[in-house]
């Protein structure tokens, strides 16, 4: 028995390679990412509380658990993200392959537009995450890095004062809203927690959560760009 075949027949490998197992991984990592979004948004909204509150919050994130906290969170989130993206890409490839000949006259009875473009909304969000990390976390722009080291609040204002940055942010957040409106409800179904009795509340919760995340995140660049917040 080679090491490879031993791995292939192991329980975690088998689970990952099964259709339902892989979807359960997507749902569980989805919970992590959804939870992160809610926390990230609530933290970000401190910007409206004032410079002091926001900078204290940024300082807390950087220094919690002697500075290890932020790295534990980053590794955990990155692992979840990689699993989520890898699994969904593999599932999508398998799904496309399962219908080799398309209908000449296709029709959709009930599937939502959001549910049909998950791979595209997801890809855009992934591209945004990469940009966002380089923009505000790694701070590749020396100008932003200089402001950010002193005053994260001012860095956010300066970052969003760029119209292209704000525009990409708005597009990404809108697609995130679409992604969540299908994704949050799907978590319940994939984990076997949805039934005809709970279907309506779950769908409503899914959409309400997506709307909350969307309105919350876009409020920041809109306040800066349209209402001149912080300038």
């Amino acid at each position: 028995m080679s090491a490879l075949s031993c791995c292939i027949h192991s329980a975690p490998c088998r689970f990952w390679n099964s259709s339902i197992g892989k979807k359960i991984i997507v749902a569980l990592t989805g919970i992590v990412l959804v939870g992160f979004l809610a926390g990230h948004l609530i933290g970000n909204l401190l910007i409206f509380q004032g410079e002091h509150a926001f900078n204290d919050y940024a300082h807390f994130l950087q220094t919690m658990l002697h500075g290890y906290g932020v790295w534990i969170a980053r590794i955990f989130l990155l692992t979840s993200l990689v699993l989520h993206v890898t699994a969904t890409i593999q599932l999508t490839i398998a799904n496309r392959a399962a219908r080799n000949i398309e209908y000449q006259r296709p029709a959709t009875v009930t599937a939502s537009a959001s549910s049909r473009m998950m791979i595209w909304s997801g890809s855009t969000i992934l591209a945004f995450i990469v940009f966002h990390i380089f923009h505000y976390t790694v701070r590749v722009s020396p100008e932003l890095a200089e402001i950010g080291a002193e005053n994260p609040h001012a860095m956010v204002i300066a970052g969003f004062s760029n119209i292209l940055v704000s525009l990409f942010y708005l597009i990404a957040m809108t697609l995130l809203c679409s992604h969540l409106s299908h994704g949050v409800g799907s978590i319940f179904q994939t984990l076997g927690l949805r039934s005809h009795k709970t279907a309506l509340p779950i769908d409503l919760f899914s959409r309400a959560f997506a709307l909350f995340i969307w309105l919350g995140f876009i409020s920041i660049p809109i306040a800066i760009m349209v209402f001149g917040f912080g300038k």
Partner: peptide
């Protein structure tokens, strides 16, 4: 089911 090559459910309820 997986062996046969069916696709994966994406909870669209078609």
């Amino acid at each position: 089911m997986d062996e046969e090559g069916f696709g994966n459910c994406t909870n669209q309820y078609e």
